[in-house]
Design a protein around this nucleic acid. Structure first.
Lengths: 160, 160
DNA sequence: CGTGAAATCGGAAGGTC
DNA sequence: GACCTTCCGATTTCACG
């Protein structure tokens, strides 16, 4: 894992494509080299399938944290949402009903980065309080929501 | 959106590939028909990119619910985890530190299905209590975690 | 190990049922 | 709308630096 690998992986996500061409053009790395690197990443277990999905544990982003966010002015949530979403490592931000104003999910590489994350939250003007929860194990972390349904249910609920 | 569309979409996720061949073989739907259908789904906005990611809102799974789960015997969480993960619609299950034992995330098509979800949770033997939270809006729902980092940070944290 | 050029494979487009 | 066939472009492989 070096800078080129990271450039390639990030480009794949950014461009939302599996095309080696597009990645090559965006990074300036020759097509055949992109291909060669991707093969290595595949063998190393970082890339897991034909859709070039990344195994975050293998990559090193193996810490998962849930952060409940309480804001000062509930009216301003439209302002706070984007700010929370901008914090490095945050992958999901939900504006919720009930006590908590926002629920955020983050993926992090180290314990130090958790401290950094929390202080980034606390530094936001509208945030009054946060409550962080470490995830011990991810029992299920599906990126493929349809797999959690039987075909029958999907047809029943969604077919027109 | 009909049964064939759903079969195709589900197969793409299941096989973890973007290959029309593989989908054709798995579903029994001819290659060119798969291709034709995918084009339509693309135009309809259900499929959003070259990686054939699905827009769950367009598909109709537009409700997001967070469920906190409290269990009776904390020792048994290894047994409970898979059971929770089996509930239809649940996409993520995290075993967490602190008060709550599990945090689950679900994607659902209708208000009725929310009721069904909660009763599925309550029906589990080891579950003592649940606390459900509706997500009003998803401020950020990235499927591409690396986008939440700058290239510099990633290199710094992950490069060897 | 990284790269350019040749070979191979798979998807895209158009016509037909 | 579903399907077959032709064609073209992309991916992969190979040989060399």
């Amino acid at each position: 894992m070096d800078e080129k690998d990271i450039q390639i992986l990030k480009s794949i996500e950014e461009l939302e494509t599996t095309s080696t061409d597009a990645v090559s053009e965006a990074t300036g790395i020759p097509i055949s080299t992109v291909h060669y690197r991707l093969n290595n990443l595949r063998e190393a277990g970082v890339i897991t399938n034909d859709r070039l999905d990344i195994d975050l544990d293998e990559l090193g982003l193996d810490i998962t944290v849930l952060v409940e966010v309480f804001t000062k002015n509930e009216q301003n949530h439209r302002k706070s949402g984007p700010k929370i979403a901008d914090i490095e490592g945050v992958t999901k931000v939900f504006f919720t009903m009930g006590e908590t104003d926002f629920m955020a999910l983050a993926r992090l590489p180290s314990s130090e980065s958790v401290e950094r994350l929390i202080s980034d939250f606390e530094a936001l003007e509208d945030v009054s309080r946060t409550n962080s929860t470490f995830v011990i194990s991810r029992e299920l972390d599906s990126h493929y929501p349809l797999q959690q349904y039987t075909a029958e249910t999907l047809v029943e609920e969604l077919a027109e």
